[in-house]
Measured scan of single mutants.
Amino acid sequence: TFYNFIMGFQNDNTPFGILAEHVSEDKAFPRLEERHQVIRAYVMSNYTDHQLIETTNRAISLYMANL
């Protein structure tokens, strides 16, 4: 899942690491979701930090390219 992918960046001092920290603390994050459209919609609806949203979009693109 995307959640498992992004958790691989925990403790990294990178934008993906920052995203992983936010996702791990977000109890409502769709952890079992595999459809990138649902993940993107969730982030757009629940996150207000523009940098975090952009990082999510980049992470989703990388995740999709590696499926």
Rank of each mutant, 00 (worst) to 15 (best):
N66L: 15
M44V: 10
Y42T: 02
I60R: 00
H50W: 13
Y63C: 04
I60G: 00
S45V: 08
N66F: 15
I60L: 15
L32Y: 14
I53E: 04
E33Y: 03
L52W: 05
E33C: 06
Y42V: 04
E21P: 03
H36W: 15
Q10K: 15
R35M: 06
T1L: 06
E33K: 03
S61Y: 11
V43S: 02
A41P: 00
T1H: 05
Y42W: 05
E54V: 09
T55I: 14
I6G: 00
T48R: 10
E34G: 14
D49V: 05
S61H: 12
K27P: 14
L52S: 02
T55N: 04
V23A: 04
N66A: 15
N66W: 15
R35C: 13
E21N: 15
R40I: 15
Y3M: 01
A59T: 03
N46P: 03
R40N: 06
L19F: 04
L19N: 02
N13M: 08
N57D: 12
F5K: 00
I18K: 14
N66S: 15
T55G: 03
F29P: 01
H36G: 14
D12F: 10
Q10T: 09
E25T: 14
L52N: 02
Q10R: 15
M7H: 01
T48E: 10
N46M: 10
I18M: 11
I18C: 08
R58T: 08
H50D: 12
L32I: 06
P30H: 03
T1C: 06
Y63M: 07
E54I: 10
N4L: 11
E33W: 03
Q37I: 08
F2E: 00
F2V: 03
E33L: 03
V38W: 07
S24W: 09
A65V: 09
T48A: 10
F9K: 02
D26Y: 06
G17V: 04
S61D: 15
R40K: 11
A20G: 02
R40D: 02
T55K: 02
N4G: 11
T1D: 05
F16Q: 02
T1G: 10
N4Q: 13
